[in-house]
Amino acid sequence: MATLYTDRINKDFIGHKALDDISINIPEGNIYGLLGPNGAGKTTLIRIITQIIMADSGVVYIDNRPITPRDIERIGYLPEERGLYKKMKVADQLLYLARLKGISRNDAVDRIRTWLKKLELDEWANKNVQDLSKGMQQKIQFISTIIANPEIIILDEPFSGFDPINADTIKDEILKLRENGATIIFSTHRMESVEELCDNIALINKSKKILEGSKVEIKNSFKSNTYYVEHKGDLVDMPKEFQLIKSEVNGEQIAKSEIMISDGTVGNDLLKYLVNSVQVVAFIEKIPTMNEIFINAVTQERHE
């Protein structure tokens, strides 16, 4: 189990500010989504956490103390731009990468066998990487990231290049890793996977952190008190605390409406009113999707 947080990280690339005072807090045993548009600085932040590059100022803390080069062996990193030695055998390659992480040869051999079996790649162990399909190579890459049982796993766009079945397999493995206590940082701009997997998120835009917190809280804070209602019958002369935003009727005469309630009223008030006026088919509170929050936050920044 490991906790990780960064304190006011700054990084300047020759004339361009890549990270501006970034402080994020990653609770242990969490899946933490690092979100942001392309070029926001996510990869730079990850590279600083993995000690590939050094921050100009600011500190990365692991277990409440500054990170040291030795901690690198506790971190597994799957970069967005991935690659393997094409002319090396699958098992040899995994062994090499595991040993670079400080795993003994015997341990590594056992784990490689287990993982290849688990991901149905055992027949390919003695094939060169270049003979494998893209999807298989991605799986090998995933194994190489976690082969050393890292306490902190950093995954940069882990699902790119996977078909839906393999993506599901990997997703299940990620969830299992969390159950086993790993802290997972997950960088992506695919919001549906954030929706499914993340416990906490941070949103980075233009080198600055603009949002951080638990996914549920953030979603709630972006609620607009709007309800989605399907109903039969017309909504006429609604009280002024309920505002009809839009309404449309489809073929079966079921109307789909969005209604915003004013402060001081709750969803039940609206439901009571509706039950008395129309035949309610569906009643759902409209919670913003991560996608909406993301687009909202980023475009708002752009306008400022």
């Binding site: 991935r82 690659g83 393997l84 992480k101």
Partner: peptide, 14 residues
């Protein structure tokens, strides 16, 4: 560099 394995390696060694 072109294989892009470099980033994996340098996350383990200097």
């Amino acid at each position: 560099k072109t294989n892009r394995i470099i980033e994996v390696i340098v996350s383990s060694v200097k």
